[in-house]
């Protein structure tokens, strides 16, 4: 196992992590500020990817596709918030899970109705395709480097938004005490809609960015949703910093675990068993990580101490 391979895998882990962060950021804000479990967050990711594929197909422009993805997901997010979610803030989590699960089914079958059952085509634009050679002779796809950069830029922007702006103050206040900031005259329902829109737009952006190197199909959001929940539980619910650290941890654990665990097992057993056992353990690795973090810190790495 060469150093080049290890560095390449670390880059892969980072790239996976920052994309998870885009999903987890919205989820953690919505959960942290509004106390709402939104299972339909994965559907917003899918909407972003489908909108991007449709617009890229029509115009041929990847940038326009990204804008369309964010806009479509944001509009869907606002609609969902105003029509359905708003009625659920006061109810318990079970009702929220039930309603947002129904939304998953509605969005999935609605998307199938509009776009058909076959996966759509969305590709990397020419100017971002192909590998580049990094110092040390590492060949790495340019697009994945751009993903890492874009994800970190969004993380930085969100950090500034939360810590330096008036909206950010309101969001942080909302996490601490909802009733109190309403009493102080902040229009809480507008704040909720705004947060929901922001979270939805980020999910849509992630869907479009990732859709270009994966398959744009109905149901693409749900596997990511599960990982995003793992991320926010590890990072601490409501914390953007926690979401970033959690996402990078999950991304690196998942990627590096998949490489090194089978290699590790090969030291003890024959290659065929090692491959199968290593692959099985690797797919559990992030859940083991989550368990370990929760034993050490029950509210997550950056969660509010209860």
């Amino acid at each position: 196992m060469s150093a080049i391979l290890i560095i390449e895998q670390i880059l892969n882990g980072l790239q996976f992590g920052v994309m998870l962060f885009l999903m987890a950021a919205g989820l953690t804000l919505i959960f942290g500020v509004m106390g709402l479990i939104n299972l339909a967050h994965g559907s917003l990711y899918m909407i972003g990817a489908f909108a991007a594929a449709a617009v890229a197909g029509l115009t041929g422009s990847f940038l326009l596709a990204l804008v369309a993805a964010m806009a479509a997901a944001a509009v869907a997010g606002v609609l969902v918030e105003v029509v359905v979610i708003r009625r659920l803030y006061a109810t318990d989590h079970l009702d929220q899970v039930l309603a947002t699960f129904a939304l998953i089914l509605i969005f999935s079958e609605g998307t199938r109705w509009m776009f058909g059952s076959f996966p759509l085509f969305l590709d990397i634009p020419d100017y971002l395709s192909g590998p580049v050679t990094l110092p040390g002779g590492i060949q790495y796809p340019l697009y994945r480097l751009v993903l890492i950069g874009a994800g970190l830029a969004v993380a930085a922007g969100l950090g500034l938004l939360i810590t330096r702006t008036r909206i950010g103050i309101q969001i942080r206040a909302g996490e601490n005490d909802r009733e109190m900031i309403a009493a102080l005259g902040v229009d809480i329902s507008r704040l909720y809609t705004l947060i929901f829109m922001l979270g939805a737009a980020l999910a849509g952006l992630a869907g479009a960015l990732v859709g270009a190197i994966q398959s744009v199909q109905v149901g693409m959001g749900e596997p990511v949703l599960i990982l995003a929940f793992v991320v926010i539980v590890i990072g601490g619910i409501g914390s953007i910093k926690g979401a970033l650290v959690g996402a990078l941890l999950v991304g690196l654990t998942d990627t590096l675990g998949g490489i090194f665990l089978p290699e590790l097992f090969k030291l003890f057993t024959d290659p065929a068993t090692a491959t199968a056992a290593g692959a099985s353990l690797a797919s559990m690795a992030i859940y083991i990580l989550m368990g370990a973090v929760l034993i050490w810190r029950p509210t997550g790495l950056f969660g509010a101490r209860a």
Partner: peptide, 13 residues
């Protein structure tokens, strides 16, 4: 010889 996860979407590794 590698076994990947069922439903895996990222094959960079």
């Amino acid at each position: 010889e590698i076994f990947t996860e069922l439903g895996q979407t990222d094959y960079a590794a």
